[in-house]
Amino acid sequence: MTVLLNIDAVTKRFGAVMAVDRLSLDIYENEFFALLGASGSGKTTLLRMLAGFEMPEEGAIRLDGADVARVPPNKRPVNLMFQSYALFPHMTVEGNIAYGLEMERLGRGEIAARVGEIMEKTQLSALAKRKPDQLSGGQKQRVALARALVKRPRLLLLDEPLGALDKKLRAAMQLELKRLQHEVGITFIVVTHDQEEALVMADRIAILKDGRLVQVGSPHEVYEAPASRYAADFIGVTNFVEDGGRVLAIRPERIALFPEAADRKVEGRVVARAYHGLDLMLHVATAMSAQPLIVRVTAAGADRRPVAEGDMVTIGWNDADVRIFTD
């Protein structure tokens, strides 16, 4: 794999606030990469530095080996899809998409051809003459995407690309984005605070906290082998059990209800149950921890042996499924 983007010890402060703190990261060609973090983690600042809207105080941002940290946004082969979409309200869909190509001073014929092609790919052809105000949220999102993609950037940055969409559309668009990324063969960096979105879409995820990297890895790695207590807590749901200076972390789906064989078994009382349709979350109060442990039971499992609030249950897990943190 070739490194496309090399972020090398990049630092950015706003006044006394350290937004990005000596952060280093390599991103490979054709990767779908997610920057995941809570608000204030520095992910948006990092994205804006990659786009050229902020300049790092220290460090280098190398794109294809050349430092672009001080290159203005209109001179980098990088495009950003804004969270607000930032479509030009006085231009049509077609006009919005053509704008970036006009800036490259391409011929009319080539512009028309490339705009037509990308509108086809993003199912916008029928809306070519509409103004942004006449579009739905999902359509606007596709225009913003097409407008950035048509430039064929080396790197496409997407700031909370699905944040403004409703839940159903968001799920569909997650797969759509992935499909498009494969089709156009452009490296995507998505900023998101939605861990599920990152897990579904990304080839690799970087978790950010206070301007530093917490962990970088594939969705499977960050979910199954979180590097820290923060990572375990941020991605998915995790039960934490204090155990003599150590913290045991275990996922709800790794805890079995009424296990036949388990390395560790414990009795508890069901204090709450939350039904999600596909599965059932039981909150089981035990002597092990102050917080009740969350146990995920599949719908089928719940039907086999129904459990009500207030019932005494036995739960258990295997040591291999437990992560141990010392921080």
């Binding site: 209109n74 930032a86 030009f88």
Partner: peptide, 9 residues
């Protein structure tokens, strides 16, 4: 910013 990003001075 979007205009700058798309290559305009």
């Amino acid at each position: 910013e979007a205009s700058r990003d798309l290559g305009a001075g």
